[in-house]
């Protein structure tokens, strides 16, 4: 997400970030330390429970965070709401977000897309990140592609690495277009 925000900012798209952690604001602190955004555009939410509940079942704490951020920073073009965890049932409520990107990690194994779940089948974009470590972890990018082709039909997905400029540029282009048209 940091790399994506950096590219969007370079293209003149004003971004904000809301992160979700259970007990801390560690992820917000990481974004802050990256220097990719002014501190006032970063909000850390400590959910007090599994973050998937705060982005799906009861989104009020994230809704308040986004509302406060946008009120404080009225010029934002896009706000990213980050929530992590190895949870194939996690979904972002459409009451909270306009678009939903499901990011999976090659290191989690090439079995992940075949397991299904709404992130794999329903999200607006699946990103298979860290493709550069596939050999080291014994995963096959071809299997990721095969199973995502089967699971997603016409919906897009991208295989990326922050070390592969073209792959990151393609995702930034798509998200930048969303930010422009809504």
């Amino acid at each position: 997400m940091i790399e994506l925000v950096r590219r969007l900012a370079a293209d003149g798209i004003a971004c904000g970030v809301v992160t979700n952690d259970v007990y801390t604001t560690v992820d917000a602190d990481i974004v802050t330390r990256s220097g990719v955004l002014p501190t006032e555009r970063i909000v850390g939410v400590a959910t007090g429970g599994c973050p998937h509940a705060a982005i799906r079942d009861d989104v009020s704490v994230n809704d308040a965070a986004v509302t406060g951020l946008v009120a404080r920073e009225p010029g934002l073009d896009v706000v990213f709401i980050e929530s992590g965890g190895d949870n194939l049932t996690a979904t972002f409520s459409r009451e909270l977000v306009h678009r939903w990107i499901c990011v999976i990690d090659v290191g989690a194994g090439d079995k992940i897309p075949s397991k299904g779940g709404p992130g794999i089948t329903e999200s607006d974009l699946v990103v298979v990140n860290k493709s550069d470590i596939a050999d080291q972890v014994g995963a096959s990018v071809a299997i990721f592609r095969r199973d995502l082709d089967a699971a997603r039909g016409e919906l897009p997905y991208a295989v990326t690495s922050t070390r592969d400029d073209a792959s990151m540029a393609s995702v930034a282009g798509l998200v930048g277009a969303w930010a422009t048209v809504g």
Binding site: R56, T91, R94
Partner: peptide
């Protein structure tokens, strides 16, 4: 209704 929320097609307020 809660199942629909978890699937992602309906929001919790909806």
């Amino acid at each position: 209704a809660q199942a629909a929320v978890r699937i992602g097609r309906v929001g919790p307020t909806g």
